[in-house]
Design a protein around this nucleic acid. Structure first.
Length: 745
DNA sequence: ACTTCCGTTCTTTTT
DNA sequence: GAACGGAAGT
C-alpha cells in the first residue's frame, strides 16, 4: 500500500484523518471502498490500532468479507476485526447478552416468512379477522414501532395493531426468537439498560466505520450513537444520491444530522469518478441533476468519453430480451468476459422474459434474488427441523414440520396440541409427553409420541456434530429424504437435490468459519442476502434488480424495462399523486416517491464502466396481462440519447427519436411511426422463433442436466417452449431435452 | 387424514 | 403467472 501513489488528495485526507468523527461524502465510483479499506489498513499498520478494536459496518455480508480480504492483503492481519452488517452485529451482541433481556443465548432468528407465520397465529389467538387485518400491514406497523425504538406498551399504536404488537412480541419471547427488527432494537435496549455493557463495547471499539450510511435507519443510527459518543473515532461514508431504501425506513437525514450530532467532524468529499466513461457519467449526472434536494457535490472524470450511451426500443419484452441476448453474443465474440456483463430491471418478475431470451441464444446466466434457494419449501422445511433442534421452544417451526413428511398428524391434531400447550403453558414440543396428551385419540396419541421420540433421538445425536453432519442426519432420521425418494417424481427428485445442496451449503459455510456449529450456520442462513449468494467467477452474465446492483460494477450494463410504470415504478407515482390530490393523505414514513426512483436509475447507470445500454418495450406482458407504457421519463433527461439510439446490435438496430415523445406527459401514447426499422429477423411475435442464428448458438455447447449429467449439444431445434436440444450425454447417450432443463457449463 | 384440483387474488424494491 | 384457500374426491 503506497498512500502517495495509490490515492488522490481527497482519498488521502480520508485515509490519514486522525482522531475524531469523519464524514465522507463519496459519489458513485469515487473509490470509497478503497478509501475505507486503506484507512483501516493504515490504522492497523501505521497507528498501532489492533484489528479487534475496529468495527466496520457494511451493507452486505459479501462486502464485509471482501473488506476483510483486502485488509488481509494490505497488512496481512485482519484477525479479530468485526466487519459485518448492522443485523449481523446486532445478532452477535445478542448472542452474548440476550440473557439480560430474558431471552436464551440459543435464540432463533425469524425472517419475514417466519414472522408472518407467527403473526398469523397471533391474529388467530386474538380472534382478529385476517381479511380485515392484513398480516403484512400488522407486521409493518410493528416494524415501524420497533424502528422508532418503541416497545408494545408505548408503541403509539392503537386498537388491533396495539394488541397485535403485544401478543406478537410475547410469542417471540416465548419461542425464544427475535425477528429482523429486534436485531437492531434489542441491542439498543441492552445498551440503554446496562451501561456497564455499553461501556465495555465503547472501550473496545476505538474505531468504528460505517459504509452506505445513507441507508441506515433511525434505530441503526441510534445504536451507533450509543456506541460512539460525540468525539469518537466514528467514520461514516455515504452518498445521498444513492439512497434507495427509504421505503424500508432508511433516513438520508442521518447524513445531515451527523455534522450536528458530532461537532467538529471533518467532512471529505470524493468527487472524482474512476469507474465510468465520460459519456456514461454525463448521462447518469443529467438524470440525477433533476432531483431538487441534493448535497452539493459534483462528480467528474477525466476518462475518455468512450462509446455513447445507447438506447433501443423493442416491440415487447420478448424482443427486448432477444435484442439484449444478441448484443451479449456479440460482446462475447469480441472477447468481453460474460461475468463483466449485467442485466438490470426494476422488479424480479421481469427476469423471466430475459432468461428466456438468453436461453434462446445459449448465453449462460445467473439470477440474483427472485425465488431464492433458501425460500424453497423443502429447504424451509429442513431448516425448520434444524431450528427446532437448536431451539426446541420454536413453535412455528414445530407446526411447520409436524406433518412433514405426512405422518398422520393433521389439522385437527395440530389444533389440539396448540390448545394443550396453551393449557400447560409450555411449548408445543413439551406437550408431546405421555402424561400431557390428554384428549387425543389413541392413534394420534401414539403417532405424536412416535414423533416426539424420533425428534428426541435426533437432538441427542446432533449433539456436538458439525452443521453439515446435522443436516445430513436430519434428512434421513426424520424420514423426509425417504418420503421424497418414494415419491419418485421429477419434482421430488429436484427437492432431494436441493436438500443435498443444503448439505453442501453447510460444508461451504464450515470452510469459512471456525464456528461450524448448527446454531452459527442457522444464523448465517438467516442473515445472508441474495447478493451474498451470487457466486463469482463463473462465466455467466448476471441478472438482478436495480436494488441488488448497488455497490457493484460491470464493464457492460443493460438497463431493461425503461418504461414509465416500471422505472419510475407505478407505485411510487401513485404515492405522489395521492399526496398531491388528497390533502388528508399522509404519506408513510418510508416513501421515496419519484425521487427515489430517479436515484435508483442513477445507481443503475453508474454501475457501468465501459458501456451502458438502455432499452424499453412498447408493450409488456407481465403478471398475466399485457400493458403499454410510454418510455421512462428519465430517458428524456439524457441529452443526445436519441442521436445514439439504435446501437444495441447490428442488424437488430432500432432508431428511436425521443424528441417525438413528451416524456413528462403521462398520457402520451406510443405510436408506430415513432419507432422505425425493426429488424424482422429478431422480432418474434406469436411464439414462433425465427430461423437460423439461435439454434446455431447452442450447437457444440457443453451442458449439465439434473438427471443425465454432462453432455454436448449436437443439434438444436426451435419449439414453442424454447430451444429443443439433442444432447450426447457422457453416461446415458443421446437424448432430447428442453433447453430450460440444462445448465450451460 | 390426505391429495388434487379449481377458482381467487395479488403481484416493488429487502435486511 | 404463482400462491393461496376451499372443496371435493381417495
Amino acid at each position: 500500500m503506497d498512500l502517495d501513489r495509490d490515492l488522490n488528495p481527497e482519498q488521502r485526507q480520508a485515509v490519514l484523518h486522525g482522531d475524531g468523527p469523519l464524514l465522507i461524502l463519496a459519489g458513485a465510483g469515487s473509490g470509497k471502498t478503497r478509501a475505507i479499506t486503506c484507512r483501516i489498513a493504515h490504522l492497523i499498520r501505521d497507528r498501532g490500532v489492533e484489528p479487534w478494536q475496529i468495527l466496520a459496518v457494511t451493507f452486505t455480508n459479501k462486502a464485509a468479507g471482501e473488506m476483510r480480504e483486502r485488509i488481509e492483503k494490505l497488512v496481512g492481519n485482519s484477525k479479530g476485526i468485526w466487519a459485518l452488517t448492522f443485523h449481523s452485529f446486532g445478532a452477535r451482541l445478542l448472542r452474548r447478552h440476550a440473557d439480560l433481556l430474558g431471552w436464551g443465548r440459543d435464540f432463533s432468528i425469524y425472517d419475514t416468512d417466519d414472522s408472518k407465520r407467527l403473526g398469523k397465529l397471533v391474529l388467530h389467538e386474538l380472534d382478529l379477522d385476517p381479511e380485515l387485518h392484513r398480516i403484512e400491514r400488522m407486521l409493518a406497523a410493528v416494524e415501524r414501532a420497533k424502528r422508532a425504538l418503541r416497545g408494545p406498551d408505548k408503541s403509539g399504536l392503537k386498537g388491533a395493531e396495539k394488541s397485535f404488537y403485544a401478543v406478537y412480541q410475547r410469542s417471540l419471547h416465548k419461542a425464544n426468537a427475535f425477528d429482523f427488527s429486534d436485531l437492531i432494537l434489542q441491542p439498543n435496549r441492552i445498551f440503554e439498560g446496562h451501561p456497564e455493557v455499553l461501556a465495555r463495547y465503547q472501550g473496545r471499539f476505538s474505531h468504528v466505520l460505517v459504509d452506505e450510511f445513507q441507508d441506515t435507519d433511525r434505530a441503526q443510527y441510534a445504536l451507533l450513537k450509543k456506541l460512539c459518543p460525540p468525539g469518537s473515532n466514528l467514520c461514516v461514508v455515504g452518498d445521498d444520491d444513492q439512497s434507495i431504501y427509504m421505503w424500508r425506513g432508511a433516513e438520508v437525514a442521518n447524513i445531515l444530522d451527523f455534522t450536528a450530532h458530532y461537532p467538529g467532524c471533518k467532512t471529505v468529499k470524493l468527487e472524482r469518478n474512476y469507474r465510468s466513461t465520460g459519456n456514461i457519467l454525463d448521462a447518469a449526472s443529467s438524470v440525477i441533476a433533476r432531483n431538487p434536494v441534493r448535497h452539493d457535490k459534483r462528480l467528474w472524470t477525466d476518462a475518455d468519453p468512450g462509446e455513447p450511451v445507447s438506447l433501443f426500443a423493442a416491440r415487447d419484452e420478448r424482443e427486448e430480451a432477444q435484442q439484449v441476448a444478441r448484443a451479449i453474443r456479440e460482446a462475447d465474440d469480441n472477447g468481453m468476459p460474460l461475468d463483466e456483463i449485467a442485466l438490470f430491471y426494476r422488479v424480479n418478475a421481469q427476469s423471466r422474459a430475459l432468461e428466456e431470451g438468453l436461453r434462446l441464444f445459449a448465453v449462460p446466466y445467473r439470477v440474483v434474488g427472485g425465488v431464492r434457494f433458501f425460500d424453497r419449501a423443502e429447504i424451509r422445511n429442513l431448516l425448520a427441523y434444524l431450528r427446532l433442534v437448536a431451539n426446541p421452544r420454536s413453535d412455528v417451526d414445530l407446526l411447520r414440520i409436524l406433518n412433514v413428511p405426512a405422518r398422520g398428524l393433521g389439522d385437527r391434531t395440530r389444533e389440539r396440541l396448540v390448545e394443550l400447550a396453551d393449557r400447560h403453558d409450555c411449548s408445543l414440543l413439551d406437550v408431546i409427553r405421555p402424561d400431557r396428551l390428554e384428549g387425543l385419540r389413541k392413534t394420534e396419541h401414539e403417532k405424536a409420541l412416535a414423533f416426539g421420540r424420533m425428534f428426541k433421538e435426533l437432538v441427542e445425536q446432533a449433539e456436538g456434530l458439525s452443521a453439515a453432519e446435522v443436516v445430513r442426519m436430519t434428512i434421513e432420521r426424520t424420514g423426509y429424504g425417504e418420503a421424497l425418494r418414494r415419491q419418485g417424481s421429477f419434482e421430488a427428485q429436484g427437492r432431494l437435490e436441493n436438500l443435498q445442496e443444503l448439505i453442501t451449503a453447510a460444508e461451504d459455510f464450515a470452510r469459512g468459519t471456525e464456528d461450524e456449529t448448527l446454531q452459527s450456520f442457522l444464523e448465517h442462513v438467516a442473515l445472508i442476502t441474495d447478493i451474498d449468494l451470487a457466486e463469482e467467477g463463473a462465466e455467466a452474465v448476471t441478472l438482478m434488480t436495480l436494488h441488488s446492483a448497488k455497490g457493484l460494477e460491470f464493464d457492460l450494463v443493460f438497463m431493461t424495462g425503461m418504461e414509465d410504470g416500471f422505472l419510475p415504478h407505478r407505485r411510487s407515482l401513485q404515492n405522489e399523486e395521492r399526496a398531491h390530490l388528497d390533502d388528508s393523505f399522509v404519506p408513510g414514513p418510508a416513501h421515496g416517491g419519484i425521487e427515489e426512483e430517479r436515484r435508483l436509475c442513477y445507481v443503475g447507470m453508474t454501475r457501468a464502466r465501459k458501456r451502458l445500454v438502455l432499452s424499453f418495450a412498447e408493450s409488456r406482458s407481465i403478471f398475466g396481462r399485457t400493458e403499454e407504457n410510454p418510455p421512462s421519463r428519465f430517458l428524456g433527461d439524457v441529452p443526445g440519447l436519441a442521436a445514439s439510439a439504435g446501437r444495441a446490435g447490428r442488424g437488430g438496430a432500432t432508431v428511436v427519436d425521443l424528441t417525438d415523445f413528451d416524456l413528462d406527459d403521462d398520457d402520451e401514447i406510443f405510436e408506430d411511426d415513432m419507432v422505425v426499422d425493426y429488424s424482422d429477423e429478431y422480432s418474434q411475435v406469436g411464439g414462433r422463433p425465427g430461423p437460423g442464428a439461435r439454434p446455431e448458438a447452442w450447437r457444440g455447447r457443453r451442458v449439465d442436466h439434473a438427471s443425465f449429467g454432462h453432455g454436448r449439444v449436437i443439434d438444436a431445434q426451435p419449439s414453442p417452449h424454447g430451444p429443443k436440444l439433442t444432447v450426447e450425454f457422457e453416461s446415458v447417450g443421446v437424448k432430447t431435452v428442453m433447453a430450460n432443463y440444462v445448465r450451460l457449463v
